[in-house]
Amino acid sequence: MSESSAAPTAGKALTEQRLQNILAAICEQANLDPTGAELIKFTNNAAFRLPHHPVVVRIAGSRTVRERITTVVHAARWFADHDIPAVRLLEGVDQPVCVDEHAATLWHHVPATGPAPTGQDLGAIIRSIHALPEPPFDLPRWNLLGKIHTRIDDATGVPAGDLDWLRTRCEELEDELAELDYALPAGVIHGDPFLGNLIPGPSGPVICDFDGVSHGPREWDLTPAAVGKLRMDYATDAHTPLAKSYGFDVLTWPGFASLRRLRELQLVTSVLPNLAEATPRIRKQWEHRYRTLRANDTHTRWSPYR
């Protein structure tokens, strides 16, 4: 998650066929068989499960993710050293694995055979991450707006006027964030902890997706579940048990409204670099999110990108 920060060359959008070609080259380097690989996710990253090996290959799907892939590798090893319940990198392979301007990480597949994770589980894992000592590598500073700006710049298939509106929203939020008075001490954060990033492993839930690991406000790690409660059409409320497990309810903090706006902007812009090649369902959901965000409609529910 050697590191490459170059943007994809023109005419090389990550179509499914191109992803298959990249996957084949990555597997050749790692001496793995990609035959019959299942694409299990394709938003910021393309994740493939290999049926002939207990391995998941995660291909960085945007420039912002590629730029952070070395941090992902360092964070995964750091979490393993401290027994954080998290996915583990595949051993015996130099990571990240690079193919042209693309980069990937390889992970042990965790079978989703355990009980469904809860907000209490998520709160406990976040708390354990926040309790970690200083890492033995340079932890980047939290700069989500910078990542969002890059995604807007790399957007495909979006009218220029819509991108200009998103840039203006970023500028407004930058001013808001500069004025926030945080209640919790800053430190290591996961960056995107929500139930969708917990895998119900046979020995208990484990967390994945380390693209956002950084040094930043702990309130941010409590925001995804809170926004999920208020905005997403999830069947269960993860926020309430998370707040009880963690010991702090971010909804009661005066600065939450600004972090909510930031989270919703993140959820709208996350698919922009690959939107032109996205499935009709993802495109429809993106249009729904963008339309309600621009209308300042805070009540209409959103669905996950699928």
Rank of each mutant, 00 (worst) to 15 (best):
R58L: 13
Y234N: 09
D181S: 15
L180S: 12
W220G: 02
T156L: 02
P304K: 14
W165G: 00
Y305M: 10
W286Y: 14
H215D: 14
D81N: 07
G36A: 08
E172H: 14
A278C: 08
G146Q: 04
R294I: 02
V57R: 02
T269I: 09
K147Y: 06
W253H: 08
A6C: 07
K284C: 00
N197Q: 09
P117E: 01
A112D: 04
D138G: 13
I282W: 04
A103S: 14
T236M: 06
A178V: 03
I148R: 11
V56W: 00
A155E: 08
W253Y: 09
L163D: 03
G146S: 03
L166S: 08
F137L: 12
L23Y: 11
H215I: 11
R289D: 04
L90G: 01
D100M: 07
N45I: 04
V97A: 06
L251S: 02
H108M: 06
G119H: 04
R88N: 07
E179Y: 08
H190E: 11
G123M: 11
A13I: 08
V158L: 03
P34S: 10
A238I: 05
P185A: 15
L166G: 07
T71R: 10
H52Y: 07
G212F: 11
L275G: 05
L272Y: 12
V57T: 03
A116Q: 10
T43P: 00
A80F: 05
L139K: 04
P96K: 10
A243S: 15
W286D: 01
S203I: 00
V99C: 12
A47R: 01
D138P: 02
C27T: 05
Y234A: 09
H53N: 00
G191S: 05
P51L: 01
I189P: 02
D100R: 08
W107Y: 06
S245R: 08
T43F: 00
L230W: 03
N44V: 04
V72A: 12
G247P: 03
H239C: 05
I152H: 07
A7W: 15
F79R: 01
A186T: 15
G123L: 14
L32M: 09
A278R: 03
H108G: 02
W302V: 04
T298L: 15
R63N: 14
D175T: 15
A86R: 04
H130D: 12
P96T: 13
N274K: 12
G61S: 08
D237W: 01
L14T: 09
T300Y: 09
I199Y: 09
F48D: 06
H288R: 10
G36V: 08
L180M: 15
C27E: 02
V97N: 01
Q95S: 09
H299I: 00
L122I: 10
S203G: 12
E134D: 14
P117H: 02
L145K: 00
D175P: 00
R291F: 13
C208S: 14
R289L: 04
L163F: 01
A235K: 07
Y182K: 15
F210M: 15
T279N: 06
G191H: 05
R49P: 01
A60G: 10
Q120D: 15
H53S: 11
Y290D: 11
N45K: 08
I129R: 01
E38I: 11
T113F: 06
I126R: 08
P117S: 00
P111E: 15
